[in-house]
């Protein structure tokens, strides 16, 4: 908790931080490049974009492939749904190029629920993002689960009015995405495996690098920023806040209430569940149990209650070199 850096845009008062309970800093009043300003009513500022992510905290975002599943997710207490054509486990099993979903299908899901709707676009595919923004989706996931469209560049997310979430395996990757305009970060994990080990690895990597940075002098932070290939001002801000400067969710392999609570205790702000719900025996019951587990992540008594009698979980895969569909997390950096 040093004095605020001259390079940081916000004038945030230092606040005590704790795992899973830290305050996301107040966004700077500076307007994003793509923002429309009408008098002093500003649309699509970074503050508004990251504000929506803050409202999702402590919640569960569920993958759904049609309006019916979206309604089940809403009734089970999802704080948002991710509309996609195939859940990651099916993309993995069926192979082929995975792309943005049919806008008609996404629109049906938007019509069916009142909670926010997210949709995935391929890494670097800014035209898919323009289309998704146009149809009124609330959030875009620039996702390694789909087949990348650009193996070098990510989308310039500042140019959009709607917010983006991006995956990251470590602090450097997270801060590179934030510098490109991501208003929310999630672990990459290994989607479609039902195996939480990679999400744990990524979350632990981010947290341990933040801890290291938080005790560094400025001289050391310059070197550290170079090492992790991240902009210095974001490294400095992260060190000061002792957390990522935007909301950070768990994703990739979460299949049980215990998995979800594990990620929360490791310091995540909320959880994405992909294949884990609609590839299980009783989706509605499991979804509701995971929602409760994220709220009561520190209460073993409630965790034990909600974990009972959920029926079979999705069949998991171990993470091996010949993993069917390959390691999605290695896409994009």
């Amino acid at each position: 908790m040093s004095t605020p850096a001259a390079t940081t845009p916000s004038s945030q008062t230092p606040i005590p931080q704790g795992a899973g309970s830290a305050v996301v800093p107040t966004p700077a009043p500076a307007r994003a490049t793509g923002a429309q300003t009408q008098g002093s009513n500003s649309l699509g500022t970074f503050g508004v974009k990251s504000g929506l992510a803050q409202m999702l905290k402590g919640g569960v975002i569920m993958d759904v492939v049609n309006a019916e599943q979206a309604r089940i997710a809403e009734e089970a207490g999802a704080c948002a749904v991710m509309a996609l054509e195939r859940v990651p486990a099916d993309i993995r099993a069926e192979g082929g190029v995975a792309r943005m979903s049919d806008p008609q299908m996404i629109k049906e899901i938007i019509e069916a629920v009142t909670i926010p709707v997210m949709a995935k676009v391929r890494i670097g595919h800014f035209v898919e993002a323009q289309i998704i923004q146009q149809i009124g989706v609330d959030y875009i996931d620039e996702s390694e689960v789909l087949t990348p469209a650009d193996d070098e560049h990510h989308i310039n997310k500042h140019a959009f009015k709607i917010p983006f979430v991006c995956g990251a395996r470590d602090l450097g990757e997270a801060l590179r995405r934030i510098s490109e305009g991501a208003a929310m970060i999630r672990t990459k994990g290994e989607a479609g495996t039902g195996n939480v080990v990679e999400a744990v690895r990524h979350q632990r990597a981010v947290m341990s690098q933040i801890k290291k940075a938080s005790v560094m002098s400025d001289e050391e932070l310059y070197v550290f920023a170079k090492e992790i290939q991240a902009p210095f001002h974001l490294v400095k801000e992260t060190a000061r806040l002792k957390r990522l400067p935007v909301v950070n969710f768990a994703a990739g392999g979460v299949a049980t209430p215990a998995d979800a609570a594990l990620m929360m205790q490791l310091g995540c702000d909320g959880v994405f569940v992909g294949s884990g719900i609609f590839h299980s025996g009783d989706p509605a019951k499991r979804a509701r149990a995971i929602v409760q587990a994220v709220t009561h992540f520190n209460n073993p008594k409630i965790l034990a209650e909600v974990s009972e009698n959920l029926g079979p979980a999705m069949v998991g895969l171990t993470i091996e070199p010949d993993l069917k569909g390959g390691k999605f997390a290695q896409r994009g950096s």
Binding site: Q54, L56, E75, G77, C79, A80, Q292, T295
Partner: peptide
Amino acid sequence: PGGESTTIALLARLS
């Protein structure tokens, strides 16, 4: 607080 009203109401009920 702010959040999703459907989620908060359901969790209040379940808790």
